[in-house]
């Protein structure tokens, strides 16, 4: 990707200033400024959220749009002490890691034959995966609730981990299949001649090459576990097992949408992911669009 702009390739050696060039430059600065202003307006609600979280109750009611008078932290202290934040972060992390391990293992394993064998069997399995990708979770939520209840999986970590794993597995299979199909086959064939079993080939030859896909998938799973609302809302009722967003949802709901609690809770809920996004911005945006274009 080239970072040069056609309009800036001006011969700098010229002494006399070309009025045309000045006009062009001015137009460029103004248009860029306008677009940046537009982008700023788009992120305003998020800036508003952060600003509000530092305001006292009087500031919120008397000067709803103004900047906070000082870095007032009491809202955060009160929210932190009563929303079970730390516990919910630990829950979300534990669930995330479990789901990543399962999705990566099961997904990459299934993708290997699908990428290497072209047959009707492969096509049928890919179709089943596509069905999983296209089915809205509201179509399956009633039976999953009933099955979980009958198996005693409601309100358990195991249940929510399995539900999330199923939700992201089809995507993982597609990601890995595309990636493995593009890998050269020579190493596998050499390993097979040396007498390696399929499982050994997968584990020692294929698996070490999958890191880029695994990293993208791990980010996706993290985003989903952190943000998904429907499954934990319906499958978890024990406060000690809440994920971050359900903790935020229940907490803000219980305060009757009190702004001095709502905004710090919203910021706390978003903070870990925003940090992740700032670090991995390119991979997240790139991964999302690559997945979409396929």
């Amino acid at each position: 990707m080239s970072m040069t702009d056609q309009t800036t390739t001006a011969p700098s050696a010229r002494k006399k200033i070309d009025p045309n060039l000045v006009r062009k430059r001015a137009r460029m600065i103004i248009s860029h400024g306008l677009v940046l202003l537009l982008v700023f307006i788009m992120v305003m609600p998020l800036i508003y959220m952060v600003m509000m979280s530092f305001k006292t109750a009087t500031e919120i009611s008397q000067d709803p749009l103004g900047l906070p008078g000082s870095l007032y932290l009491d809202n955060y202290i009160r929210a932190l002490s009563s929303m079970g934040y730390v516990r919910s972060v630990i829950n979300s992390l534990g669930i995330t890691i479990s789901v990543i391990v399962l999705v990566v293992l099961i997904g990459s394993l299934a993708a290997y034959p699908l990428a290497r064998i072209e047959s009707r069997t492969s096509r049928i399995i890919v179709m089943i995966m596509a069905l999983g990708l296209a089915t809205p979770n509201f179509v399956t939520i009633t039976p999953i609730y009933v099955i979980f209840r009958d198996l005693g999986l409601l309100d358990t970590y195991l249940g929510i981990v399995l539900a999330f794993t199923a939700l992201k597995l089809p995507l993982a299979v597609f990601f890995y299949t595309g990636f493995i199909a593009a890998l050269p086959r020579e190493m596998e064939e050499a390993a097979r001649l040396d007498g390696c079993s399929n499982l050994q080939i997968f584990w020692y030859v294929i698996r070490p090459l999958l890191t880029p896909v695994t990293a993208t998938l791990a980010l996706f799973v993290m985003l989903m576990v952190w943000n998904d609302f429907t499954y934990p809302l319906l499958l978890l009722t024990d406060k000690d097992k809440f994920t971050v967003m359900i903790a935020v949802y229940r907490f803000v709901g219980a305060t009757g949408i009190d702004p001095t609690m709502l905004f710090p809770a919203a910021v706390l809920g978003s903070l870990p992911l925003l940090a992740l996004f700032i670090v991995f911005q390119r991979r997240i945006v790139g991964g999302a669009t690559a997945g979409a274009v396929k």
Partner: peptide
């Protein structure tokens, strides 16, 4: 522009 899509419906909804 992508940042709101990264956030949770819960946070966006309440804000």
């Amino acid at each position: 522009l992508y940042t709101p899509a990264m956030m949770s419906f819960v946070v966006i909804g309440y804000v």
